[in-house]
Amino acid sequence: MRVRKLTFAALAVAAGLSLTACNGDDGTAQSDGVSASSGSASDSASASAGSKQAGGTDSTASGSGTDAEADKCRTDELEITASDTTITGDEEGSAAVTFKNGGGHDCALSGYAGVDLKTSEGNLSAERSGQASDPVILKSGESVSFTIAYPLNDSGGSGVRITGLVVTPPNETKSVTLAWPGAATLPVTDGTGSSVTVGPMGSAGQGGAS
């Protein structure tokens, strides 16, 4: 029995020495301390990365667009006028239609306006000239114009009488009817296509505050 008790005592001493070697001076397990520090750094890096990602997304969204936030120009917010711009000696007549932003805030015009001439023979829709049409951000109080080109009636005949001008702003369905400012008549055609063309925004000048 004495031999067995001494063996147990020796094993207990050896186990105690092993635990002391694995612990720090204050008895706290070093492995636990290392694990906690590593976990904190990982959490901090993860939080930092998440914060940067969220900030980048927000920055991109807000920076994408002052211009993108501008609503389209509504017919009711535009002051629409027309004037004759034909120059003596030109082979064709021209008129300018001007949109002035009276809505009190910036608005966007993108594409071509719709243009119809009211004539003694019925409505005549203008065709697009095919020029590139860049979006326009129209600030409050500023104007932009586009051109209507049409053939002059030099045939000597009475021609087709023009009685009015119908204009629809781009991407709108509400139209306005204006007095026609150009020549009184168009030459008679065989009806195979429109002889009137409309240019994009800015085709009658760059516009500007007025």
Results as ranks from 00 to 15, higher is better:
residue 93 G to M: 07
residue 156 G to C: 01
residue 83 S to G: 00
residue 142 E to Y: 10
residue 53 Q to T: 14
residue 120 S to T: 07
residue 110 S to F: 08
residue 5 K to T: 07
residue 196 V to K: 02
residue 17 L to M: 04
residue 86 T to C: 04
residue 32 D to G: 09
residue 141 G to W: 06
residue 116 D to W: 14
residue 160 V to S: 01
residue 64 S to M: 01
residue 203 S to H: 07
residue 188 V to T: 03
residue 178 L to K: 01
residue 201 M to H: 03
residue 87 I to H: 02
residue 96 A to M: 05
residue 170 P to E: 11
residue 82 A to P: 07
residue 63 G to T: 06
residue 74 R to Q: 15
residue 56 G to A: 15
residue 42 S to F: 13
residue 117 L to I: 04
residue 147 T to D: 11
residue 199 G to F: 06
residue 196 V to Y: 02
residue 109 L to H: 01
residue 57 T to K: 14
residue 165 L to F: 06
residue 197 T to S: 07
residue 191 G to M: 06
residue 40 S to V: 14
residue 32 D to K: 06
residue 26 D to K: 13
residue 50 G to E: 09
residue 43 D to V: 10
residue 154 D to G: 03
residue 95 A to L: 08
residue 153 N to K: 03
residue 33 G to W: 11
residue 89 G to K: 09
residue 84 D to R: 09
residue 107 C to A: 04
residue 198 V to R: 01
residue 165 L to R: 01
residue 120 S to P: 02
residue 143 S to T: 12
residue 20 T to Y: 03
residue 71 D to W: 11
residue 146 F to A: 01
residue 190 D to Y: 12
residue 151 P to V: 07
residue 133 S to R: 04
residue 140 S to K: 12
residue 122 G to V: 01
residue 133 S to G: 13
residue 26 D to M: 11
residue 25 D to N: 14
residue 78 L to E: 06
residue 170 P to M: 06
residue 165 L to V: 03
residue 193 G to Q: 09
residue 139 K to D: 15
residue 85 T to Q: 05
residue 195 S to L: 01
residue 14 A to E: 00
residue 18 S to P: 07
residue 62 S to V: 15
residue 55 G to E: 11
residue 168 T to L: 00
residue 6 L to T: 15
residue 3 V to H: 14
residue 170 P to F: 10
residue 29 A to E: 14
residue 36 A to E: 08
residue 147 T to L: 11
residue 102 G to Y: 04
residue 101 N to H: 05
residue 189 T to V: 06
residue 14 A to V: 02
residue 130 G to E: 01
residue 51 S to N: 14
residue 48 S to G: 12
residue 208 G to L: 07
residue 192 T to K: 13
residue 25 D to Y: 08
residue 118 K to V: 09
residue 167 V to D: 04
